[in-house]
Amino acid sequence: MITFDNVTKRYPGSHEALTNVSFTINQGELVYVTGHSGAGKSTLLKLMAAIERPTTGTVLINNQNVSKLKSGTLPYVRRKFGLVFQDHKLLYDRNCYHNVALPLSINGITGQDAGKRIRAALDKVRLLDKEKAMPITLSGGEQQRLAIARAVVSRPSILIADEPTGNLDKVYAADILQLFNAFQQVGVTVIIATHDALGNSQNEHVSSKILHLNQGRLVKAEVAV
């Protein structure tokens, strides 16, 4: 459902962040994007989510060529994804409930229907009792879970998370990964960028694909079981 063919990305006034990257991700897969800081993981995720366009090469999302899409249709492509940003991008001027409400309101879902979905999403990340709390009062792990709730509230078929365990200690990190696994179990395609060496014991029983980046080049695409 996501295909990169010879994709190169160069930011204006910068060197190549990605060079000749090709791979395919299928429906329902669990994919880890690994590599050092600056290897191009975030860039790869942004290209997948139609936030950036490739400099050369093609990115196909559900057989749609992102480069050929009019900029007016890009927002609708983006809505297929649930995104967890590297820096959360939570809105600190409103409570948890209204943070999770944002993607729904963008999709024109409001009122009772929205309320049900928001509470279901908060429930999934075990933050139902914090619905009225402001994000600033949450712990790091809770903020990350709130970001996940916002990403899944509109029931996307693809969930993309950029270093979701980056600043968390081991217990919290394992907890978050568990959540992603649960989504993958119910058929969601899950793509996670991480800079730590994988092999975290929790995931050994889950089959997953690893895209390893080194200085913008894909050096390994392997399936771990």
Partner: peptide, 16 residues
């Protein structure tokens, strides 16, 4: 600004 940025990233149209 923050809300606008996130909204655009997760698929809000310009007119929205």
């Amino acid at each position: 600004q923050a809300e606008i940025e996130v909204s655009q990233l997760i698929g809000a149209t310009k007119s929205f």
